[in-house]
Each structure stands twice: as structure tokens, then as C-alpha cells.
Design a protein around this nucleic acid. Structure first.
Lengths: 234, 234
DNA sequence: TCCTCCAAGATCCTATAGGATATTGCGTAC
DNA sequence: GTACGCAATATCCTATAGGATCTTGGAGGA
């Protein structure tokens, strides 16, 4: 509401947005964790990071503080930071239970509220990732992961509740799930399920949208759950 | 699960917990914001904070980075930090819509899952704040606010879904609501509504628990909403 | 063989100084 | 009277150095 009057100056000033080292470091370390370059439990040495990145401690400390707030690293006072552990089976179940509670509801809200602009954005997002390569590669996996994250975030945004959206974003669910497993063959199915959600939203049918989203999340859970059954016997 | 085997040494080592300046600063600034000592929009000058608190910049910068991650302050690169604005009417509505979606569900889950230990904890929390003073004071308001926050957090914990609990905590809803309004006369009603939730949880009746929580949140919304109708004409 | 103690090393935490950037006020030109 | 440009100030951002703490390795004694 206040942003509605910023005008041209405000928009130009927003172009460079945030050109601070802290943010670059934040994204860099986040990428390292997401791509499993650093394994869970790895100690993140501040001095080592200053040498490797060629910058001072301050921006690194700020980044790590934010990453801790996100739950991606853990701070042990006077000992240092460690990369937080991967999802346990319990946490995995919790996460999907939470998603099954939030996302179908959000999809239903999106179906009720979406106007022409919103539908256009959905369509654009769907078109942004159409090419499913024959053989799975790391690059295509990352592209699919990014698209999946944007899609689910967009549904939350279209639901029109910023609190719910932020709350969902802060679970960093996609990041945690991507850390879990990196492999091909799931893109095609997920895309088809996404399309079912979009179709329902376009029709403006809340119940169908919610049902489609529920099916998608349950299918996603079923695809990922075997990871635990073969690795974590608890 | 891993913590189950730490033994005495681990527990003793945990006693001092976190004795770092950053955390003290974090709690201090958080308190300043919550108690409306610093108004929304106020610039938080790092240099000034170093002088007032008598410490160096580093812990302050870490605290502010975490507070920004929490959404309590806003960082404007090369300009400084500002205290984020109070809830708008739209954000207020979003927040309560979100709570109405999450908390009754959590109360129902708590009713299904709670064992004797859990019920004892609920009872203890209820007993921790029984005295409603005749005339509302700032102290009693703070006590009631803290109890209210603990109560709702406990319900989320008893629901047995850590993801949902963290996600809910990170809305900082109580903090934002307390910033909104400071006045007496709501404690008695809120306590009575809390008791209704507890009664249903003790009976192990999910639907009654969910209904009681829903009533409580709706009543809470009705108590707070007039603030907007008289101040914010949007 | 095991335990205790001590010292060296590494790491984090804090403090201070210098460079870069944005804001503010004033003077000048139109 | 208004608008533009420039300089001074304040603030943030970065870098480096010193103090405090924890961990690790080995030596001595029971």
C-alpha cells in the first residue's frame, strides 16, 4: 500500500537491490548445502571461509547468523558452525503432513481468487520448464528443482495470504528435500501433477484444486519415502 | 533420539547454554521492539548501539541479521536497519486466517495424541498464570502475553509436528499482536477460552478441541480488530 | 593399563581503524 | 523563487589485530 506511491525513483533504486557481500555469501553457502557439496555435520570454519572467498569475517558471520535462523546450520557457541543434519524419517513425515495441511488449502484459495493476471503467471511458470530431457543430468535436476519451488511458492502467493506464504517458505522444504535425494525420472510425473493443479485453478474449482494438490504431495511423498526405508531402519 | 544418550556431561555442558553477546543483544532488541520502546520505522543505528550497549559491532550485526530473517527489522543496504512496520489491516486478517487454519488443527491433533505427561504440562502452564489482577498494569500485561504465547506454542508442540510448530513460531504472531495493542481487560476472557481448549484436550476429543481453539482465535480477532477500524481507515 | 594434568594449537569472539556510500545543507545560476 | 551542483557529515561496510575459550596431543603417576 505504501509501495504503491514510490514511483519511478523507487523502482530504479530497486534495480541493484542488494549489492552486499553478505547476501552473496548467504546464497553461496546455501547453494553449497543444497548441492550437498558440504555434507551434514561439516564444520563451517569462518577463517577458512574468509581465505577461500577472499573477504573479511563480518559478512560471513552475518550470513551464518541468517542461515542459523533458517535452520540450515547450527551454531555451537565458542565452537563454531556446523551444517545441520539431513531430514530424519520423523521430520520427513512431519514436513509432508504440514504440506498436506497447507498446500491443498492454498490451492483451493488460489482457485477461488485468481484473476486473469494470476492465471497468466501460472501459465508462464508452466511454460518456463517444458523440456524434460531424455537422460537425467545434474543440470536438468537443478532446473526442475527450481521450477518446482517456484511453482509451489506461486500457488501460495495466489492464495493471497502473505503470512501463510512466508511461513511456508521458511520451512525451506524444497531445499531439505533436494538435499535428500538427487536423481532423475521424477520430473515427468511431477509436471503432470502440476498441470492438474493448474487446470483446476483455471477452472476456478477450489475443491478440485485442493484435491489435485493433495494428490501431488502424496505422490511426491511416495516417491521420496523409499529413501528412508532403505537407509534409515528406525 | 540422539539426545537420549548424551548423559550427565552433555546436560551439564548445556546449562550455560549460549553465553554469547549476540543472543543477549538479540533478546534485548527484540524486547525493545515488542515493548514498543522503539516505534516502527525507527532507524537502528549500529554505531549508536555499540555505544549504548558498550560492545563492539560484530554481535550487533549478527543480531540484526537474525532479526531481519525473523522479519522484525528491515535492512536497507548502505543505509541501515529500520524497525519493521506494525501489522496493517490486511496483514492482520492474513495472520488470523492462517491461525484459524493451523491452530484448531493442532488442537485436534493434541487431543488425539496427548498422554499423561503432556496433560500435566498443559495443567502446569495453566496454573502458572492464574492471578488476574484487578487493575491492569504493564507488568500483568506482559505476564499474560508471555503465558498466552507459551500456551499456544505448547498446543503446537503437543500436536507432534515440529515443522508446523517452527513454521508457526516464525510468524512471531504474538509479538506482532502485542506490538499492536497494550491494554488490560482481555486476560480473563482469554483464560476462560484457553481452559475450554484444555478441557477438550484432556477429554481427548479432537473436534471439540479444534472448535474451542477456533472460537478462541475468532474471539481474539474480534477483540483486536477494532484497533484498525478506528485508526486505519483503509 | 588407565587416568589425570598440562601445554600447544586452532578457533572463535571482540575491538578498532580505514575506505565507500548515501544523505544533508548551502551556495550559485537561471 | 526555483532548480541544480557541490562539499561536508554521518553511516555503513570491510579489513586486520589482539584476547578468550575450547580441543587435542603427550607426559607423568597410580
Amino acid at each position: 500500500m505504501t509501495d504503491a506511491h514510490v514511483g519511478l525513483a523507487g523502482q530504479l533504486a530497486r534495480l541493484p537491490q542488494r549489492q552486499v557481500l553478505s547476501d552473496d555469501v548467504y546464497e553461496t553457502v546455501k547453494g553449497l548445502i543444497m548441492d550437498s557439496v558440504v555434507e551434514p555435520g561439516t564444520r563451517l570454519n569462518i577463517d577458512a571461509l574468509t581465505r577461500e572467498l577472499g573477504i573479511s569475517q563480518t559478512p560471513i558471520r552475518e550470513s551464518l547468523a541468517r542461515l542459523e535462523s533458517d535452520g540450515l546450520v547450527i551454531k555451537e557457541p565458542l565452537r563454531g558452525y556446523r551444517v545441520s543434519s539431513r531430514l530424519t524419517r520423523d521430520e520427513f513425515d512431519d514436513l509432508f503432513e504440514y504440506r498436506l495441511h497447507i498446500e491443498p488449502w492454498a490451492a483451493g484459495r488460489a482457485a477461488e481468487r485468481s484473476g486473469a493476471d494470476d492465471l497468466a503467471r501460472l501459465k508462464a511458470e508452466m511454460l518456463s520448464y517444458t523440456d524434460v530431457p531424455d537422460r537425467p543430468s545434474y543440470e536438468s535436476y537443478r532446473a526442475m528443482a527450481a521450477h518446482d519451488q517456484r511453482f509451489h511458492d506461486l500457488v501460495l502467493e495466489l492464495a493471497g495470504n502473505e503470512t501463510a506464504r512466508l511461513s511456508f517458505q521458511r520451512t525451506h522444504c524444497h531445499l531439505h528435500l533436494f538435499r535428500l535425494y538427487y536423481g532423475g525420472g521424477i520430473a515427468t510425473k511431477a509436471l503432470r501433477e502440476h498441470k492438474a493443479v493448474v487446470t483446476a485453478v483455471r477452472k476456478g474449482d477450489p475443491e478440485e484444486a485442493a484435491a489435485a494438490m493433495r494428490s501431488h504431495i502424496e505422490a511426491s511423498r511416495a516417491r521420496l519415502r523409499p529413501i528412508f526405508d532403505k537407509s534409515d531402519p528406525s
